[in-house]
Deep mutational scan, measured.
Amino acid sequence: MTEYKLVVVGAGGVGKSALTIQLIQNHFVDEYDPTIEDSYRKQVVIDGETCLLDILDTAGQEEYSAMRDQYMRTGEGFLCVFAINNTKSFEDIHHYREQIKRVKDSEDVPMVLVGNKCDLPSRTVDTKQAQDLARSYGIPFIETSAKTRQGVDDAFYTLVREIRKHKEKMSKDGKKKKKKSKTKCVIM
């Protein structure tokens, strides 16, 4: 069974824990209790493949930012979460993405942009803004509501699919490099 290491990042209060708990335990946590770091595991079937999701729910508070490099190193894919009623959390996505790329030393890291709290009427981040940002990053965008469960499975499952595509691409690139290195030079 394939294991996928997913990391949920975003500013404090955007609903990272609520999304994760909704996926794992099928219930909505409405009281806000700032996370330092929590880890969850769940076995699911995605596109006919049974897999184990190892999900790291991270601290959004700035005082825990020193811990970010460590979990970013171990993560295979990242859910970059903002709240649709919090423009600052949307603007912060850029910083999370840049930090992930720096730590992973790669421009090509599996990510999904997630606009959470889409059940709320007080939207300050337009869907088109988020779609445009995701398009500019070359990553999928999904709106979710941890409260109603809308888009929750889709967000995590899409990230797994992005990781699969990335692994497939990397193995193809690896095979191309191996083929090239088999060419021999004969000096007579």
Score class of each variant (00 low, 15 high):
Y64M: 12
S65V: 07
S65L: 04
S65R: 05
A66E: 11
M67H: 10
M67T: 12
R68V: 11
R68Y: 08
R68P: 15
D69I: 01
D69L: 02
D69H: 05
D69T: 04
D69A: 04
Q70A: 07
Q70R: 05
Y71A: 11
Y71D: 15
M72E: 08
M72V: 09
M72K: 04
R73S: 13
R73Q: 12
T74Q: 14
G75F: 05
G75N: 04
E76Y: 13
E76Q: 09
G77L: 09
G77H: 01
G77A: 14
G77S: 02
F78S: 01
F78L: 05
L79I: 14
L79W: 01
L79Y: 02
C80L: 14
V81R: 00
F82R: 00
F82V: 08
A83V: 02
I84P: 15
I84W: 13
N86D: 15
N86C: 04
T87V: 06
K88A: 10
S89L: 03
S89R: 03
F90G: 04
F90D: 03
F90C: 06
F90R: 04
F90W: 12
E91Y: 04
I93F: 11
H94G: 06
Y96V: 15
E98P: 01
E98V: 01
Q99P: 00
I100Y: 02
R102N: 05
R102F: 05
R102C: 07
D105G: 14
D105L: 06
D105C: 12
S106P: 04
S106G: 13
E107N: 07
E107T: 08
D108A: 05
V109F: 11
V109T: 05
V109I: 13
P110K: 02
P110I: 02
P110L: 02
M111G: 01
V112A: 02
L113K: 01
L113D: 00
V114D: 00
V114L: 09
V114M: 08
G115Q: 05
G115H: 05
G115R: 03
G115V: 10
N116D: 07
N116G: 08
N116C: 15
K117C: 15
K117T: 14
K117W: 15
K117M: 15
C118Q: 07
C118Y: 10
D119H: 05
D119S: 05
D119Y: 03
D119P: 03
L120T: 09
L120E: 13
P121Y: 10
P121Q: 11
P121M: 12
S122H: 10
R123Y: 09
R123L: 11
R123T: 12
T124C: 11
V125W: 10
D126M: 06
